[in-house]
């Protein structure tokens, strides 16, 4: 399926370079423009070059008391990389997934055309939702040039607590690692205090599991309990309660294989974020509606020049 001629791999900050299938050897690496293009604080929207780091973005927004809750694992990650990977941050429970923050994308397709999708206003249903299509596409349908993001006011207070908060209204995050539950509340001082009553404040946010082999399990939120119980002691894990994401890490590649089989047993799947066995395609499962996804790939990259191996198109379901 890959066309003769060079294959192109868009590159951000390489903070998640191992996500998905391995990049094609000899691929031409391309980078996106860096910097803020327009920022109108009173509109709560910002347009940046896709090569802009989250750290820069967050700094600019902070000057006006705003933020965009992309929350990448590394602040060095670029906006283009965050959107292409589509990995949502820890505050997804309240702030929504990455795809809900993107208003407009401009990207170069595989056949070299600059395409705009979406619009720069906070509300828009004009035409098909290319921003959502782009998020999580792993650089297989286009090289992102710039993106317009929705911002929001930064909360005056943000605090982690240890303890269970099942019924708390609009908790920003709830993490569970099998031993402890931690909850993040954001809001005005009085509300954060009242929500944290009876819970022990934490000085530092809980750390996500780390290690040379890392993955991210996606299961229905109602199945997190049984899924994490089945992970047993083979991997270190931390679950986002109410969301269904389980972060797993291990010292051995085999443990990641185990975690993936557990995810399948509970109706989910696991995306490899780092490490894993050398033959891992990153997904370990066939794409749903694979024929349709191939046609989508064809539509934007007829010559299959863009990261042809990042998504498991070849895997048979």
């Amino acid at each position: 399926m890959t066309a003769p001629g060079p294959v192109v791999a868009p590159v951000g900050a390489r903070t998640h370079w191992e996500i998905g299938g391995p990049p094609t050897e000899g691929a031409v690496e391309v980078r996106a423009p860096v910097g803020v293009i327009t920022y109108e604080p009173a509109d709560m929207t910002i347009t940046v070059g896709a090569g802009t780091s989250f750290d820069t973005l967050d700094g600019v927004l902070a000057e006006h008391g705003q933020e965009c809750a992309l929350d990448p694992r590394s602040r060095a990650a670029t906006v283009g990389g965050i959107l292409a990977c589509g990995l949502s941050g820890l505050r997804r429970l309240r702030h929504g997934p990455v795809r809900d923050h993107v208003l407009e994308v401009r990207f170069e397709t595989g056949d070299g055309r600059l395409v705009k999708g979406g619009g720069q206003t906070v509300k828009n249903v004009t035409g098909y939702d290319l921003p959502r299509l782009f998020v999580g596409s792993l650089g297989t349908i286009g090289v992102l040039q710039q993106a317009t993001l929705r911002c929001r006011p930064r909360f005056p207070r943000s605090r982690w607590f240890a303890g269970s908060a099942t019924d708390s209204f609009r908790a920003s995050a709830r993490l569970w690692d099998g031993a402890r539950e931690a909850v993040l509340f954001e809001g005005v001082d009085a509300d954060v205090e009242s929500q944290g009553r009876g819970l022990a404040p934490l000085d530092t946010p809980p750390a996500l599991p780390d290690g040379p082999h890392r993955g991210r399990i996606s299961v229905a939120p109602g199945r997190v309990g049984e899924c994490t119980a089945a992970l047993a002691g083979r991997v270190r894990w931390c679950a986002e309660l109410g969301v269904g994401t389980v972060h797993v890490a291990a010292d051995e590649a085999d443990a990641l294989v185990h975690a993936r089989s557990v995810s399948h047993a509970y109706g989910g799947w696991m995306l490899r974020e780092a490490g894993g066995p050398s033959d891992d395609d990153g997904f370990g499962c066939a794409l749903p509606s694979a024929a349709l996804m191939r046609r989508v790939k064809d539509a934007f990259d007829p010559g299959w020049k863009l990261n042809p191996a990042r998504l498991p198109f070849a895997r048979i379901g």
């Binding site: 299509l133 998020v135 996804m293």
Partner: peptide, 17 residues
């Protein structure tokens, strides 16, 4: 799907609207 992320393209996102 009910899981937070689905593998591959967000076809759900394309379909809505």
């Amino acid at each position: 799907g009910l899981e937070p992320d689905s593998p591959g393209y967000d076809l759900r996102g394309c379909f809505v609207g």
